[in-house]
Design a protein around this nucleic acid. Structure first.
Length: 418
DNA sequence: TCTGGGGTCCTAGGACCC
DNA sequence: TCTGGGGTCCTAGGACCC
């Protein structure tokens, strides 16, 4: 038996914890640069605000205070997430953190007679300790636990749902639309609906060859999981990433080479941070730039270039490579809206292939990076930067509505009037 | 005017090997 | 007329997830 536990409207709920006056108010949380809506409270959903909707389309609602907007505050959400996961873990050590707001819990081997009440206890404890409302779905496979979670959220007043018999599986699948099944996305649900497959139950009845042909083995796995045969296993410790990307949109499109070069250097440095965190080294570095996708009057340009590097996690080498790649694809007279750096060909640092013609002193870089990381860790993130990143990070994000980082910054602690 | 960021897996096809 | 058989590795593109 698995449980899928997730925070309801997680980012919006995080904001509410520190601002309880907003408990009944419509809330939205916006992406970086306040570009699009990435989280909504139930009240905001009821107003018809869509996930991914452009912020300027709801600007009226924000200005007239009918909706309260927040810029995303990942320092806060990340910290709240960790606290929430800590509570989950009290209920079973076998936990897979699946995303910032959800985790699978494995109750294999537990006495399941009172499992529903375990779900209720978990929910109460998280609410009491962290202040975030969560939903709990139990099922014999991860896909069914996901479905149970959705039912818990939608139909169960106490926020817990349990699928634990063939009868309940059938009932749950019949009340789940095909597009709401985990693993079936837009393309496939569109295709399936055109073949009269409207619910999860319809999908479960399809012949295997048909699914295999149209959706490959991933479709078959989903079907088996829906019928109660586990195919998707738990991942208790996250494997190292195979690709690491750092990219941002600019708050204003720019044609300034220096500006973009500084941004790119910063992205490369961040990729280095992330590589060192997972004790990896990268063999390839890709730089990409593009103009806005949304302006049909202006010429569109998007390009990328990949350079090979001797396996490294040194931000210095990554920055150098990134700047070379940028030179190759940068064209004047375009207004760039987005740029980024991707490192791939990732290997464990201790297994890195040495290069016969390598000139840089790897050990020197390693020690320098270690020192930089240590200083940044103890004295504040990015206290030490590379000159190439620019002194002031000219390309700073637009965050008009950001709340305080209540739980991670001493000078932003919540204040209470007595 | 204004539209995010970060990942994974699977398959087909091409290039290559003996 | 008829042109083998059995593999691996890599990449691009498409699908999916949050």
């Amino acid at each position: 038996m698995f449980a899928l536990v997730d925070g309801n409207n997680f980012y919006a709920s995080c904001e509410r914890v520190f601002n309880p006056a907003l408990r009944k108010q419509p809330i939205v949380v916006l992406s970086n640069n306040d570009g699009i809506v990435i989280a909504r409270s139930n009240e905001a959903k009821a107003l018809g605000i869509k996930m991914g909707q452009a912020a300027f389309e709801i600007q009226q609602l924000i200005n007239s205070k009918k909706v309260v907007a927040f810029s995303s505050n990942y320092a806060l959400y990340g910290d709240m997430s960790q606290r929430m996961m800590q509570i989950f873990k009290d209920f079973t050590p076998a936990m897979e953190i699946y995303s910032i707001d959800e985790a699978f819990l494995d109750f294999n081997g537990f006495d399941l007679t009172n499992i529903r009440s375990t779900g209720l206890k978990l929910r109460q404890k998280v609410y009491k300790y962290i202040g975030i409302p969560v939903s709990v779905g139990f099922g014999p496979t991860k896909t069914l636990a996901k479905i149970a979670n959705r039912i818990a959220k939608k139909y169960m007043k106490d926020g817990v749902a349990l699928i634990n018999s063939p009868q309940k599986i059938e009932k749950a699948l019949k009340m789940t639309a095909i597009e709401d099944v985990w693993g079936i996305g837009r393309q496939h649900s569109h295709f399936l609906k055109s073949h009269q497959v409207k619910t999860a139950w319809d999908f479960a009845q399809l012949p295997q060859e048909f699914i295999r042909k149209k959706m490959s083995v991933t479709g078959l796995r989903t079907q088996a999981e829906l019928l109660g045969t586990p195919c998707i296993t738990m991942t208790y410790t996250p494997p190292p990433k195979k690709a690491i990307r750092t990219a941002r949109s600019f708050s204003k499109a720019t044609s300034d080479y220096e500006y973009i070069a500084e941004a790119i250097a910063g992205f490369a440095a961040t990729c280095g941070d992330k590589l060192r965190q997972q004790k990896s080294a990268a063999n390839l570095l890709t730089v990409f730039v593009r103009t806005s996708k949304f302006n049909p009057k202006k010429p569109y340009y998007a390009n990328s270039f990949t350079v090979q590097i001797p396996a490294t996690s040194s931000s210095i080498i990554l920055i150098k490579a990134a700047k070379e790649a940028l030179k190759i694809i940068f064209k004047h007279h375009y207004n760039y809206k987005k740029a980024g750096v991707l490192v791939s060909g990732i290997v464990p640092e201790k297994n890195r292939q040495l290069n016969l013609f390598e000139s840089t002193d790897y050990e020197k870089h390693r020690q320098l990076m270690q020192t930089v990381d240590r200083l940044n860790q103890s004295h504040g993130y990015r206290l030490i930067k590379f000159a190439a990143e620019g002194r002031f990070r000219a390309w700073h994000l637009q965050q008009t509505y950001r709340s305080k980082r209540y739980t991670t910054h001493w000078d932003e602690l919540i204040q209470i009037k007595v």
